[in-house]
């Protein structure tokens, strides 16, 4: 039995409280992080391990809702452990807690839910827990949202969940779907951007919205970023790159399907 989503321990009435695994090779750091997490009402149990190997051993016997990981550790590093966790059938969300920004990009690649810097502020840690909780609740089902589209005098209904990306065309927006079809609707892109933000549509370019759930790859070459949805590669403008990274990191493991690396 390995990782899990929200099957955690039932912490009395109401919402089940999180069971958290904390891994850090430095005792004072481990104590502090365990203490701060334990003080959080949303956390039910904290399991502390002083090495990545111990962490893995624990995960073999116990189920946890999320993992807080130091990066620089002797033997198996935090990044390596996160990679192993990523192969679990249901990877537990990972939050990196580390002294330096240096590894932020790697952490992003590993779809970490959050990245917290040491020394740790309680408010910042609380935010990380919030992101873990946000990520473990199943993404809002949008399949029931049907969009009326007209083509050749026939009105059809398209599931919003099937839409991979939206392209601006003047006052119209072209909806691209998983089946490769495209439909024009008379709605400005900015309106869709606002109304569909909840459903995971994100602005990546002056004329593009992308459904984060359909993003399989983020590429970054010579300073230019692009995302892949299905067989299509979409450019991400410089202005939107940072926001996209942030939102992907936050949604990692939840809305974003794992890419075959």
């Amino acid at each position: 039995m390995t990782g899990t989503g929200m099957t955690g321990p039932s912490g009395g009435a109401g919402r089940p409280r999180l069971r958290v695994l904390v891994v850090d090779d430095e005792r004072p750091a481990l104590d502090e992080l365990s203490y701060l997490l334990d003080a959080d009402d949303r956390v039910g149990e904290v399991i502390a391990c002083q090495s990545a190997t111990d962490g893995l051993r624990t995960l073999r016997e116990r189920v946890v809702d999320c993992v807080f990981l130091d990066i620089q550790m002797p033997g198996l590093s935090g990044l390596e452990l996160a990679e192993v966790l990523g192969r679990f059938k249901q990877p537990p969300p990972v939050v990196f807690v580390t002294a330096h920004e240096q590894h932020a990009v790697d952490a992003f690649d590993l779809r970490a839910v959050d990245y917290v810097l040491k020394p740790v502020r309680p408010e910042r840690l609380a935010e990380a827990v919030r992101r873990v909780l946000g990520g473990t609740t199943p993404p809002a089902p949008s399949a029931d949202t049907q969009i009326a589209v007209e083509r050749g005098g026939v009105t059809r209904f398209v599931d919003r969940g099937d839409i991979t990306h939206v392209e601006a065309q003047g006052d119209y927006a072209r909806l691209h779907t998983t089946s490769g079809d495209a439909y024009l609707v008379r709605v400005p892109l900015t309106t869709l951007e606002e109304e569909w933000a909840e459903a995971g549509f994100h602005r990546i370019h002056r004329s593009l919205l992308v459904a984060l759930a359909h993003v399989t790859e983020v590429r970054s070459e010579a300073g230019r970023t692009s995302v892949r949805v299905g067989d299509v590669e979409l450019p991400v403008s410089r202005r939107h790159t940072r926001a996209l990274r942030d939102v992907l990191v936050r949604r990692a493991g939840a809305a974003v399907s794992r890419d075959p690396r």
């Binding site: 430095e26 620089q72 002294a99 330096h100 810097l117």
Partner: peptide, 17 residues
């Protein structure tokens, strides 16, 4: 920077313990 921030983090922990 690792040394600086890890040291401060350890000190933060000892402040309590």
């Amino acid at each position: 920077p690792h040394f600086v921030y890890n040291s401060l983090n350890a000190i933060a922990s000892f402040v309590r313990t």
